[in-house]
Design a protein around this nucleic acid. Structure first.
Lengths: 228, 228
DNA sequence: TGTACATCAGTGAACGCGCGTTCACTGATGTAC
DNA sequence: TGTACATCAGTGAACGCGCGTTCACTGATGTAC
């Protein structure tokens, strides 16, 4: 099958187009991603790209799902490679490192949604994969906060308990056996808290405030581990 | 001075233009804000708007500084009106309520930055005003977490202590007498944690997960009050 | 190995569109005497 | 109160630009016999 060469070339061209699109994303945001400009940067004319993508929307969709998958995989791998005791830290740093290395891609998926753009259902599924990794990492923390008052693993606040009850059996985002509400609450709050620091950092909201965001991040991670 | 009428009309027209711009922002994002389209919606031709704004950039800048100021004022007022014991909750809910009521404006200032857009220095100043309100609200919490192990008000983790040291005397964003590092750490983490829940909520990242974001928010606020 | 045909990559012209911004101009609204 | 002038609001035409997308077409690369 000599047609395999063509296949390979197709894939290669698609990847190159997406790579160029990412540089445009970095320079001018989502709105700056232009089919014609991508083609020109690749040394070809605009319409040629329509051999590889049905249109701009498909290209955008691909960028988004790629980013979701990439982040999910990088995180899952980092967690898997870490010793059980370090899994939670590995999770936190994997997400932050990925975001800091490619801020535009992080904001592409967790930033302001592209207006009038409908994410394909596939997206939700991949996003759930990251959630699953967070859940797993949180599970390694159980019993680790024995220094807390009350029973270890017990919610400290009434509202924390309510959140746990509220989350019992919620969503399809926590497949597997370990789907009790408290764990989900932990995972959810881990997500929101990591995202809080990471997103503000990546958006440059800390610039000019005279401190190192990574110190803030470390403190937040340790607080999470402490079960707070 | 009959010229006052003209002045008033000018101001009114500017406000109307900004209002229309906000609806465009909601519908098509930052990129969808168009001078010509705004003018048309107001029943006039494109160039007419150049009597009121030097260009698109000034309009955008105005939208952004307005949003910063609006949020800062709404929050400051809510905190001021609350009883001392409720100040922190008032702060948290003021920010969230504002964001939920006008998600696009929240994302305009705390979402993905507009590419190639340089925020005026004035912006930082107004943003610091909100930070100041957060600091004040955090100050009301001191000693409120006596149920914690260790001295009340003392950092529990090594990294929390390090963050506090790191923030001693940091930035011009904490004017006034109460500028010790621990308080700033608190304020900073209050900000990032509230933002984490609010931004993901406002961006619709929780949709389809089968839970009520406000329950999560309440739990997070109580956890912050507890000093966690 | 050679020829006839099918598939695919890429071109160039053209489509309609909306954008931000400028410019010379018309009318209306204000001010000064 | 009335007239002469200045200021301002808004128009309409025009600028150059880049966008996404279609279409008919040329060449190259593959396949089948």
């Amino acid at each position: 099958m000599a047609t395999a060469r063509r296949e390979r070339y197709r894939k290669q061209t698609r990847e190159e187009a997406k790579a160029v699109a990412l540089t445009q994303l970095a320079e001018a945001g989502t709105a700056g991603i232009s089919v014609n400009a991508i083609a020109k940067a690749m040394g070809m004319t605009g319409p040629a790209l329509y051999r590889y993508f049905t249109g701009r929307d498909e290209l955008l969709t691909e960028l988004i799902t790629d980013a979701y998958r990439d982040l999910a995989e990088a995180t899952a791998q980092a967690v898997a490679e870490a010793a059980p005791a370090d899994r939670f830290r590995a999770l936190a740093h994997a997400i932050r490192d990925w975001a800091k290395e490619q801020p535009d891609r992080y904001l592409l998926i967790y930033g302001t949604p592209v207006p009038s753009y409908q994410a394909p259902p596939e997206t939700t599924e991949i996003a759930a994969r990251l959630m699953r990794t967070i859940l797993d990492a949180c599970a390694t923390l159980d019993g680790a906060h024995a220094e807390q008052p009350g029973e270890p693993g017990e919610p400290v606040t009434d509202l924390e308990a309510e959140l746990a009850r509220h989350l019992e059996g919620a969503g399809p985002w926590a497949p597997g056996p370990m789907s009790d509400g408290e764990l989900k609450g932990r995972a959810l709050r881990t997500w929101t808290r990591l995202h809080g620091v990471i997103s503000l950092d990546v958006q440059g909201q800390f610039t000019g405030m005279g401190f190192d965001p990574s110190v803030l991040f470390e403190a937040e991670v340790e607080a999470l581990i402490r079960g707070a």
